[in-house]
Amino acid sequence: MVLTGTLVNGAAIVVAGGLGLLVQNIPEKMKTTVLQAIALAVILLGIQMGLQTQQFLLVIASLAIGGVMGEWIGIDSYLNQFGRWIESVIKPAKSGESGKVAQAFVTTTLIYVVGAMAVLGSIDSGLRGDHSLLYTKAMLDGLSAIIFASTLGVGVLLSAIPVILYQGSIALMATYIAVIVPDYFLNQFILEMSAVGGIMVVAIGLNILGLTAIRVANLLPALPVLAGLMWLINSIF
């Protein structure tokens, strides 16, 4: 089944996140320390991803143009509105807790979808029926979901929805992608996409630490912009 890997990935986030909620009642100081440790690890991961680029100017241009598009569309606002709506359905907002579900949802959604594993794994699932990469991603996402849910709350579980929609769409379109996109271009794009995604991941880590308030979701159009710029450059040269 084409969507097996994607569904396993989504289920891993929900199940592992549920386990994380069971250990939510831990001392506040411990929560803070664990969350800071996660943020530092996320920043390191983002730096490693970002250093893979071979065309840094292309990465900058993609982020700049994508940021303009994202701000114009208001992606971050829509994601937060969805998270707050879910929060109002799940439970009435308590004093000092309003927006926590939305924050957890947006943060973990971005972490789970911007990496190269999501794209590569989905293409392998759709094209060859090989779900091994998404199974590996499911394990990694599940482990992080336990920790995120224990510190950020139930919003982490909701990130399974965009993960399934995003990866499932790529898996279903994989055959079409393989026909129209040459292997060399796809490999080059995934490399630069990892770099663009890595910069977003660094921003997410800084946000978790509370050092910045970067609207990372508004940078997501940088990924299709990157593909367009690369196609344009390859067509010209």
Rank of each mutant, 00 (worst) to 15 (best):
L51E: 00
V154L: 11
I38L: 12
S194F: 00
A195H: 01
T4C: 04
F105E: 03
T107C: 04
L21S: 05
V14M: 15
M139C: 14
G197I: 10
S144V: 10
L209T: 08
V119M: 00
L191M: 13
S159T: 02
S95K: 14
I161R: 07
Q36C: 14
I164C: 13
M200Y: 06
L226M: 06
Q52S: 12
N234V: 04
N187Q: 15
I38G: 05
F148H: 01
L133G: 11
Q188K: 04
I161E: 07
L58Q: 10
L3M: 10
G10K: 02
L63W: 12
V113G: 00
G99A: 15
L45N: 08
N80E: 15
T175C: 09
L172E: 05
P182E: 13
I204V: 14
I73T: 12
W72N: 11
L45F: 03
Q52F: 03
A203E: 07
I177K: 03
M49L: 11
A149L: 05
E71S: 10
W72G: 02
G210D: 06
A171G: 06
L219F: 15
I38A: 14
I146G: 06
V113R: 00
L143V: 03
G142W: 07
V89F: 15
L232F: 01
E87T: 10
F237I: 14
G10D: 12
L79K: 11
K94Y: 07
N187V: 14
Y176G: 12
T109R: 03
L191P: 00
K137V: 09
